[in-house]
């Protein structure tokens, strides 16, 4: 019973942290361009390319 008194808050806290992270990513627009993210990884972002 003693263990529960801090284990449950920890579990809920972790869950809330996950929920918070989800809301943050939703608000910062990370779910708006799901296809673009897959392509952006291919863009070279160094400006002085050798060619």
């Amino acid at each position: 019973m003693n263990g529960l008194s801090f284990l449950i808050p920890i579990a809920l806290g972790l869950g809330l942290a996950g929920l918070g992270a989800f809301f943050w990513s939703l608000r910062s627009g990370q779910f708006e361009d799901l296809d673009g993210a897959a392509l952006r990884i291919l863009i070279d972002d160094n400006d002085e390319r050798p060619d």
């Binding site: 809920l12 869950g15 929920l19 809301f23 939703l26 779910f31």
Partner: peptide, 20 residues
């Protein structure tokens, strides 16, 4: 669309913890 995603997030959080 955003409202639906928010609702999904809330439901997911609740489902996991209540299931626990």
């Amino acid at each position: 669309d955003r409202g639906l995603l928010r609702a999904l997030g809330i439901a997911g959080f609740a489902a996991m913890n209540v299931m626990l």
